[in-house]
Amino acid sequence: MNLFRLAGDMSHLFSIVLILLKIYTSKSCAGLSMKTQELYTLVFVTRYLDLFYSYVSLYNTVMKLIFLASSFGILWYMRYHKQVKQTYDREQDTFRHYILVVPCAVLALIVNNELSVTEVLWTFSIYLEAVAILPQLVLLQRTKNVDNLTGQYIFFLGAYRALYILNWIYRYWTEPKYRQYLVWAAGLVQTGLYADFFYYYLKSWQAGEKLRLP
């Protein structure tokens, strides 16, 4: 495992820690999209089914379990915690799941490495992860009040993807057999979705202000 990959994973993990910290300390999930959290949970469940049939390393297994547990934990807080659930922006978070889930499922059935249940589900998770941030970005645009932690959460989630691209470039040169075109294409799309957000985030940061969206 190279440093880019490790830094990417840590950035991903850190983004999740931030969101849990925000919810736990402020007992609020204001500004967070439950739709995005549900989509990420679906991504983890469909991708990490391989926990049952393949083993790569202890590191991978532990990280997979952490991602699964934390995504269910976040959802539990947003849905069932007495105080937290009252802070959820239900009226603003109106993005429909099927708008993303259905096209990803269809695409996974058409473009995949192998037409088997596990492989199609895995491919679906790759496509869905690429676009799962959209409800969160829409919510951000709508509410405009972005607190620091939500901004940082999205920043680290974007950083995770950018670092993975560096990891792929590194692996392209160092591992001739490693060619995951499908993953790379989805990863590029996913990182692209953050471009706009990054621009405003860095601008606000430079100006030493809170993140403001136009």
Partner: peptide
Amino acid sequence: EPSKLEKDEL
């Protein structure tokens, strides 16, 4: 063979 690619990333 693409399907035999090891899925070693998260």
